[in-house]
């Protein structure tokens, strides 16, 4: 039993030595060129996506603030139903009522 363990350890040691031997990999010709072509494609996709995302998030806080102000304004007008809120928004396409609200703040 002990000699079997010894044999296993011996083979194991050789396999570890095999794994740790120094070996270099010769990249095939045009490997870097192919990689860079993919990277440039990645950049175009990536940048477009990230730029769109950045624009959306930049306006997110402004949009939230506008929604809160609109809700406050709507509550001051005693409008209660969603229908009335929509009507208010559509009846004020130029945002004059909102502009007046901001002017009074």
């Amino acid at each position: 039993m002990k000699s079997r363990e010894k044999e296993i350890s011996k083979i194991e040691e050789v396999l570890i030595r095999f794994h740790r031997r120094h070996e270099t990999f010769q990249a095939p010709p045009f490997w870097t060129e192919r990689l860079m072509a993919r990277v440039r494609g990645e950049k175009m996709r990536g940048n477009g996506f990230y730029r769109a995302g950045a624009v959306v998030w930049r306006f997110a806080s402004v949009t939230c603030l506008a929604a809160v102000l609109l809700a406050l304004y709507a509550s001051g007008l005693n409008v209660e139903t969603p229908y009335e809120i929509v009507e208010l928004m559509f009846d004020d396409p130029a945002g004059l009522d909102l502009a007046l609200l901001f002017a009074s703040l």
């Binding site: 990999f25 990249a27 095939p28 192919r34 990689l35 993919r38 990277v39 990645e42």
Partner: peptide, 9 residues
Amino acid sequence: EDVAQESFL
């Protein structure tokens, strides 16, 4: 080479 490319990407 394939996995190395994926890694760099």
